[in-house]
């Protein structure tokens, strides 16, 4: 493993769709949300109209703590997009609040991630109207 990590490419902004725009707006305000089904209360991520558990459409955003465990990670050693400095880490996190849901993010730790490691989300502001969610070892 390298002594220190670089950074993913700057300036690759997400392109929200009509289901997810509110999610990104809330993340920009440092609120991490999932969709909670109003009928059967199943949580889901990422954003989409129907609850796959009960096939109904009524739901609301539910703020949850961005916590989880490391499911996997990679160390990027070549540029996949312009503007990155290698090596940089992308981590796959199993969300504590939503059983069965995985989320990708940047890595904010000094050491290599570990399988099953408890992690917490860190908001990374990318301007006034956008934040990304990176992950670091839980305290």
């Amino acid at each position: 493993m390298p002594d220190r990590y670089g950074r993913p490419p700057r300036g690759v902004r997400p392109t929200p769709d009509r289901d997810s725009k509110d999610w990104w707006d809330r993340l920009a305000g440092h609120e991490f949300t999932v969709q909670r089904c109003d009928t059967c209360h199943t949580d889901r991520f990422p954003a989409r109209a129907f609850c796959p558990a009960c096939r109904t459409e009524r739901w609301h955003w539910e703020a949850v703590s961005p916590e989880g465990t490391v499911e996997s990670w990679i160390v990027n050693r070549r540029p996949f997009m312009p503007g990155s400095t290698e090596p940089y880490v992308v981590v796959l996190v199993r969300l504590a609040a939503v059983p069965g849901c995985l989320i990708h993010g940047g890595w904010d730790g000094d050491l290599e991630p570990e399988y099953g490691q408890a992690v917490q989300g860190v908001y990374a502001d990318m301007g006034d109207d956008l934040a990304l969610l990176n992950w670091r070892p839980a305290e």
């Binding site: 993913p8 996997s72 996949f80 990708h104």
Partner: peptide
């Protein structure tokens, strides 16, 4: 739709995605 949750972290290409799954299997 899933690209929006990945590309901003510098992650979208098949070798990256498969490396992620491969490491999960290794672990």
């Amino acid at each position: 739709p899933e690209v929006q949750y990945q590309a901003p972290y510098g992650y979208f290409a098949p070798p990256q995605q498969y490396a992620m799954y491969a490491n999960a299997h290794m672990q």
